[in-house]
Amino acid sequence: MRQAEFRDALLDPDLPVPAGLTDPQGHPAGRRFDVYRNNVSVSLAEALCSAFPVVRALVGEDFFAAMAAVYVRSHPPGSPLLMFYGQQMADFLSTFEPVAHLGYLPDVARLELALHHSYHAADRPAVASETLACLAPGQLMESRLQLAPAVFLIRSQWPVHSIWMANARGGPPPRAEAQDVLVTRPQFDPEPELLPKGAGRFIARLIAGHTTGAALEDDLSFDLTATLGLLIRSGAITQIIPGEPK
């Protein structure tokens, strides 16, 4: 028997148990094969449960279990690193008809994935606040700020931070608004920080490699001091790369 045949029957309970698999008397394996089917589907569904607790809370345990079974069959893991299983969950949710009315769900999944990636990301020493304070304003504007590998930006048309807080930590009910979230990891525990208005666009431009000045784009409505304070306090800046001398 080829392993392909075993694999197909494993993931599709409607397929018959492959021929040539038996009990000790040589009878067809029947329920014995179901042990493997069950191990695969249950363990992968459990991996999704632990990866997406807030998505699960939003749709309910039973619905999530049924949805996870669909996801496992259409998106089996692409590597043995199960801590990163569920990479396509946001895209899956945005096309999965039964949750089409929950438009915020894909962004919640993105945030939960970012928290996992942050938890396992490389360690980098952060720049001290004094280092930033010592820079003249001109120097700061010409510098590029390198962010830690554990930092992830989630920009959403939905109140994704409030939704996460309400479900993960018993925060107040969300109000309808767009929210940008920065996942930081001050030491070992990732933290989703709600960004002030305008900061999401600024940080996205920092990540894209713009200098601080260019990332600002003459946006006067936005609180640069508060945003830099958040980045420094959370250990998000790992390097200040000076601009070319003029």
Binding site: Q3, S79, P80
Partner: peptide, 17 residues
């Protein structure tokens, strides 16, 4: 045991003849 088929990781220790 085997646990990978193509690019898929099946997360179980599957049997061999």
């Amino acid at each position: 045991a085997w646990s990978t088929h193509g690019a898929e990781f099946l997360n179980d220790l599957l049997p061999l003849p």
